[in-house]
Amino acid sequence: MTIVDVQAMDSLLREPVDAKEIPGVVAMAADRGGRLYEGAFGVRSLATGVPMSLDTVLWYASMTKALVATGAMQLVEQGRVALDEPIGRIIPALAAPQVLDGFDAAGKPLLRPAKRPITLRHLLTHTSGFGYDIWNASVERYMRENGVPLLVDCKLSSLGQPLAADPGEKWEYGISIDWVGQVVEALSGQSLEAYLTEHLFKPLGMNDTAFIVHPERRARRADVHQRHPDGSLETIDHEISQEPEFFMGGGGLYGTAGDYIAYIRMMLNDGRAPDGTAVLQPETVDLMGRNAIGDIEAGVLRPVLPKLANDTDFFPGMSQKWGLSFLINTADAPNGRSAGSLTWAGLANCYFWIDRTKRLGGVVMTQILPFGDPRVLRLYGAFEQQVYRRLAKAA
């Protein structure tokens, strides 16, 4: 049953498009029973002017992470891997990790053995020590000075990075879930795309979600736009490698807002697909949504590459935790989200939330760099607030 005022929600989403603050947006909200709202406004590309639509294919970027984590947790359920065993048993390249302790006077990286083994739990919670060049200056320098390819190139050597911290000691946002994708492949004997398609996408009807954008989907794909310091927007040539040496589990998927809402509904329904198929066991969904990092704080991002990301703190002043693999707000949030809800985002300003207490979730998806765009974040907050207000009125 629709609970939102469609006209009011349409107006809310259309306003920043008409003001030329964003090129286009797709937004959806859902509860356990189905979609409560869906809308698409603006254009897929400023260069072409093709209208945004509900079936527009967008780059999920790091919204990929939750999907890959779900695949890994299916294998945990099957007893194929334990959360706290050394992952070097499965991925020999991670058996003896090295920590980057800076650089000597000549610029040579200072490496030492990690204090403890990396586990799947470390990888799923971004406490493995692996970082991203976008948010860690030492990682950025190491990659640049040692010729490590960018992740979007999907070269196996892209993963050849030392740790920025010892496993288990801090939340360091990075390439951990790319390694989780390698775990899924090693245990399943399938490519990451084949595994997720069979065990997640098909059961949920996520028919437009994939790493490789085939021609029919390419015709519906939105372009990425770069926002310049003066606020103007430019269409840019941006695509994850379509001839990958590895599937980028941390951010390589493309798909539609409707596909992602199908995933959110599965999580709201305790792991069940619409036809009743168990994608995950209820206890696994519960586990994924609990704090898995103890006293460590998570979620606040301070970039070193401002062209790609802005400073971002989704819940200022609030203790934030991480599950397997979601950001968790520990108190009720101002827009109506319950404490203990799950969320994350994608680099091109795509955002989702899953409120398992109120059984409500949603996505707001654009294709704009840098991440943490204030205009998109305002829209995301207003959209969420409107959904919760309507839910309260319907109660």
Results as ranks from 00 to 15, higher is better:
residue 68 V to N: 03
residue 23 P to N: 12
residue 211 F to D: 11
residue 84 D to A: 13
residue 375 R to H: 03
residue 250 G to P: 10
residue 329 N to V: 11
residue 392 A to F: 00
residue 200 L to T: 06
residue 372 G to C: 05
residue 226 Q to S: 11
residue 377 L to T: 07
residue 136 N to C: 09
residue 66 A to G: 13
residue 322 W to R: 08
residue 219 A to W: 02
residue 114 A to Y: 06
residue 119 T to E: 07
residue 137 A to Y: 02
residue 285 V to C: 09
residue 115 K to E: 13
residue 215 P to S: 13
residue 11 S to N: 14
residue 235 T to F: 04
residue 310 N to Y: 10
residue 264 I to W: 05
residue 22 I to M: 12
residue 152 V to W: 05
residue 274 P to G: 06
residue 374 P to I: 06
residue 18 D to K: 14
residue 120 L to S: 10
residue 24 G to E: 12
residue 350 C to G: 15
residue 89 R to A: 14
residue 286 D to Y: 03
residue 297 E to V: 08
residue 13 L to Q: 01
residue 270 D to F: 00
residue 262 A to S: 15
residue 143 M to I: 04
residue 8 A to E: 13
residue 70 T to R: 01
residue 245 E to M: 03
residue 358 K to N: 12
residue 86 P to L: 11
residue 173 Y to I: 05
residue 160 G to H: 13
residue 113 P to L: 07
residue 30 A to N: 11
residue 86 P to R: 13
residue 203 P to A: 10
residue 363 V to E: 04
residue 10 D to E: 12
residue 93 A to C: 04
residue 319 S to L: 05
residue 49 G to H: 07
residue 37 Y to V: 12
residue 40 A to M: 03
residue 130 F to V: 01
residue 381 G to D: 14
residue 81 V to Y: 12
residue 231 G to K: 12
residue 69 A to W: 00
residue 242 Q to K: 11
residue 200 L to Q: 03
residue 351 Y to T: 05
residue 53 S to Q: 15
residue 139 V to M: 14
residue 347 L to I: 14
residue 90 I to Y: 14
residue 151 L to F: 03
residue 167 P to G: 08
residue 315 F to V: 05
residue 329 N to R: 04
residue 60 Y to V: 06
residue 194 A to W: 06
residue 330 T to M: 15
residue 325 S to H: 10
residue 262 A to M: 09
residue 81 V to M: 11
residue 142 Y to P: 00
residue 198 E to T: 14
residue 284 T to H: 10
residue 161 Q to Y: 00
residue 202 K to Q: 15
residue 110 L to Q: 13
residue 144 R to I: 00
residue 247 F to L: 04
residue 202 K to Y: 06
residue 179 W to Y: 12
residue 229 P to F: 00
residue 301 L to M: 15
residue 48 T to K: 13
residue 391 L to T: 06
residue 318 M to Q: 14
residue 232 S to V: 07
residue 301 L to A: 03
residue 234 E to Y: 05
residue 329 N to C: 07
residue 229 P to G: 08
residue 169 E to D: 13
residue 36 L to T: 04
residue 55 D to K: 11
residue 372 G to Y: 04
residue 220 R to W: 05
residue 358 K to Q: 15
residue 355 D to F: 04
residue 159 L to H: 09
residue 16 P to V: 11
residue 54 L to Y: 06
residue 218 R to E: 15
residue 189 G to K: 12
residue 384 E to W: 05
residue 29 A to R: 08
residue 237 D to Y: 01
residue 180 V to W: 02
residue 157 S to R: 15
residue 182 Q to G: 01
residue 235 T to H: 07
residue 104 D to Q: 09
residue 41 F to K: 01
residue 191 S to K: 09
residue 344 W to H: 08
residue 80 R to S: 13
residue 345 A to M: 07
residue 240 I to G: 02
residue 2 T to H: 05
residue 78 Q to F: 01
residue 174 G to N: 08
residue 287 L to R: 15
residue 377 L to A: 05
residue 106 A to M: 07
residue 83 L to A: 08
residue 375 R to Y: 00
residue 141 R to S: 07
residue 172 E to D: 10
residue 154 C to S: 13
residue 273 A to Q: 08
residue 366 T to M: 01
residue 102 G to P: 09
residue 367 Q to E: 10
residue 228 H to I: 01
residue 394 A to I: 01
residue 343 T to A: 15
residue 267 M to C: 09
residue 204 L to E: 08
residue 128 S to T: 10
residue 394 A to L: 06
residue 183 V to E: 01
residue 228 H to C: 02
residue 325 S to Q: 03
residue 201 F to M: 13
residue 368 I to A: 03
residue 25 V to Q: 10
residue 221 R to C: 14
residue 37 Y to M: 02
residue 234 E to G: 07
residue 279 V to F: 02
